[in-house]
Design a protein around this nucleic acid. Structure first.
Length: 118
RNA sequence: GGAAGCAGGUCGUGAUCGCGGUUGGGUCCUUUUAGGAUCGCAAUCGAGGAAAGUCCGAACUCCGCAGGACAGGAUGCUGGAUAACGCCCAGUCGGUCCCCGUCAUAGGGGGUUGAAGGAAAGUGCCACAGAAACAAACCGCCUUCCGCAAGGGAGGUAAGGGUGAAAAGGUGGGGUAAGAGCCCACCGCGUCUUAUGUGAAUAAGGCGGCUAGGCAAACCCCAUCCGGAGCAAGAUCAAAUAGGUAAACUUCGAAGCUGUCCGCUUCAUUUUUUCCCGUCAAAAGGAAAAAAGGUUUACGGGUAAGAUCGCUUGUGACGAGACCGGCAACGGUUUUCGCGAGAGAAAUGAUCACACACACAAAAUUCGGCUUAGGCCCUGCUUCUUUUA
RNA sequence: UGGGGCGUCGACAAGCGGUAAGUCACCAGAUUUUGGAUCUGGCAUUCGUAGGUUCGAAUCCUACCGCCCCAG
């Protein structure tokens, strides 16, 4: 099974800033998807940013964990060399796990992270 | 049997994958005491009763400090308990509800509730109404004077009427010109003494009769307590990393050309500027231009939420069970067992099974409380209802 | 973690112990051929919610709910 290591996480405020500054933005009603591509094909990082307006603490925690779980399972198919930030939109706390995954996959495919279907 | 309310208990289990900590192990590096990095490794532990709101009280840390006072804040029946508290326990008194009891009171019992110190230290307020809201006489009642009378003047009075949330103890009797604690009885209030109690108070007896209306969650007075800031407190560490500035090189994303690299073209991202369009003015939209990103080198400073500790396997205000003391809260030179999360863009999620496993809601220095939120089941109490007798 | 402020009609708001001003909007009527403008009248059983103090609470006190801001 794929793992999700600490080194794959976006942590520092500066890292987030850099991605937001120089990135491609995609969104649907549920998620906003910020992706920045890098030369180094081996490195890939992932981060989630949640506003307090989304809901109470336990809701935000659950949403973040679900998004991370989706990323952990689905990142296998991605090309390397990217940094991704997810910003959930208002209302996404009420989505089920499957709805979140569908939304994530469609955005990732639009962003070009998924290789073309054979 | 059912429903509602209140109080107490309770807050899934197992499997697979994933995540955080600790310990062990493997690999690599430095060094050979050991340290660091890393991991499809193993073992083990991994959110709450409210973790929440941040309303109180402490521990701990730094700053200040001989000691005290003012200011400011908090608390406010009594006693106990505690590390401390505005919490908790027991009691007193008052309000309210229920039950017993009575012809009706009285009396007794139980639940619940109370920011229950002081209004005879001072200031202030008590709208409207009302004569008067701490001081009074409108309608009255009585005496007397003037007048034929209607009525008017002077005085006494506060029982009755009227106003009001509130009008100066209440009821009955005596008394009087009419009245009035003016006098008497009972009740109530205040005060003194005695008794009981640690005390708040209670009981009995004496005295007092109006001087003492309400509001202190109005200012205030009295008593007691409080130095200030908070784990982003605070302590330690190399002189490196990141970021910044300057210079040089470079164009990383997507698509196409190509076997591949280099390279080229177009598109896209962010920022700025200009033009067009549009409008009251903007925005949105369209077009053009410029810059940015990555790497290397140098400078520079100790800035910044850098790293480590604080930080939680802690001998403690710790948890659970006995025993002893206490009505209880709680306590103990007693005894047995237990030792439980520790992050830092922040660990608990996904799937499946089991009774539809389901509400509220997630640690962030740590404890003791309070308040609020809320699901299922169990226990107890209260109320209502149904059936049977 | 600590501190400060605000909730009054659909919108903006005044009042801060004694019967909840005002403006815009809305409704009805008048005027007008009609609309606008103008004039007249109406529009808060209760001041975010729940308790308490008081004769009396939007106002004072307490606890909640929602929103906004500040400091490191």
């Amino acid at each position: 099974m794929p793992r999700f290591l600490k080194s794959e996480r976006l942590k520092k405020s500066s890292e987030f800033k850099s991605v937001f500054q120089q990135c491609r933005k995609l969104e649907d009603g549920t998620l906003a998807f910020y992706v920045q591509f890098k030369e180094d094909a081996g490195s890939h990082k992932f981060g989630v940013s949640l506003s307090r307006a989304l809901g109470k603490a336990y809701l935000r925690n659950r949403l973040k964990r679900r998004l991370r779980e989706i990323y952990r399972v689905e990142k296998e198919g991605f090309r390397g060399g990217y940094q991704v930030i997810l910003v959930p939109r208002r209302g996404s706390v009420n989505r089920t796990f499957d709805e979140l995954r569908k939304s994530f996959l469609s955005l990732a495919s639009r962003a070009g992270l998924l290789p073309r279907a054979k």
